[in-house]
Design a protein around this nucleic acid. Structure first.
Lengths: 158, 158
DNA sequence: TATTGACCTTAACTTTACTTGAGGTTTTAG
DNA sequence: CTAAAACCTCAAGTAAAGTTAAGGTCAATA
């Protein structure tokens, strides 16, 4: 009878740790990316006797969050910040995740809003024939320029 | 009486070409970025006798589109594709812009949809306590995995 | 006219997010 | 037991989107 890496063939024991290859396969990210995320502090692992990485199951949740956030353009550094609010010592529970998700929801809502404005402005402005950007909301959907300090950036200084 | 670079102080003659510095100031992007965009085929210029760049006014429209698209995460290569549908030989008219905007509208709608799904999934899933990603829509909002070929990437193969 | 400010080119550097390769160890399967 | 598959580290390479620097030219003005 052959033995599987962890507990025999067909093992679905949720308490068993995962190898890096298993995490890669199940999450859809490359092993090299997992190494990279670990280096950046986005995920964690411990080592077995042979110095190989072992992961808790909930690393899959973390990776899900990482990939989701990336899909909407959040840089890894910000994701790391958000994830750092999760507890290290114990497995995060649903309350932890929910708390963390509040920040994401805000961000998502903001992004959706920006996109929607942009789309509407695009519809109304792109064909308007104005040659000046002076009043063109396309260039400045919502409030993006206000973050860059004062100065009439788009307005002819003459 | 002093003379300005083009037609005297306070000139607002819309028919006059712009220098790279003027474009930079009015669009809010660095001169180096303008060089870079030109190199990538996103914008165009001609040269004066002294080999300095001169721009048509409508380069400002192009830059507005470039910045807007970047704000929502579209890579420059895609922006270049879209912009290439505008005519080179004559100044784009509102019909040209409108035509081009159709593609963006589709893309924007798709992005908005993806984000909205992600947000809703986040609300319903993040606190659900599921330890497996098997059915977790967070990891796979909409149809993103389907682009990567077949194979049950997220599902335990055992 | 002379000097500054704006411009030119080319090359190298930066950051983010990874991938690839080299060279070596561990684990699993037959 | 042994070969293959999976894993390890570290260094270097890649792509995108620019920025910075060096060395030189052009243009506007006091």
């Amino acid at each position: 009878m052959k033995k599987n890496r962890q507990g025999g063939k067909g093992c679905k024991d949720v308490t068993q740790p995962l190898t890096v290859g298993q995490v890669a396969k199940r999450s859809g990210v490359a092993v090299s990316a997992l190494h990279f995320y670990e280096q950046k502090g986005l995920i964690k692992s411990w080592r077995n006797q042979g110095n190989q990485r072992r992961y808790h199951r909930d690393v899959l949740r973390r990776i899900a969050v990482i990939k989701s956030a990336q899909q909407v353009g959040v840089p890894l550094s910000e994701i790391a910040d958000a994830l750092s609010s999760l507890p290290d010592s114990r497995a995060p529970n649903s309350g932890d995740w929910a708390k963390m998700s509040q920040a994401w929801l805000q961000d998502l809502n903001h992004r959706i809003e920006t996109l929607t404005k942009l789309r509407d402005n695009l519809s109304s402005c792109i064909g308007c024939g104005c040659l000046s950007l002076q009043n063109c909301r396309l260039r400045n959907p919502g409030d993006s320029l206000s973050e860059q300090g004062s100065g009439a950036r788009l307005i002819d200084p003459d």
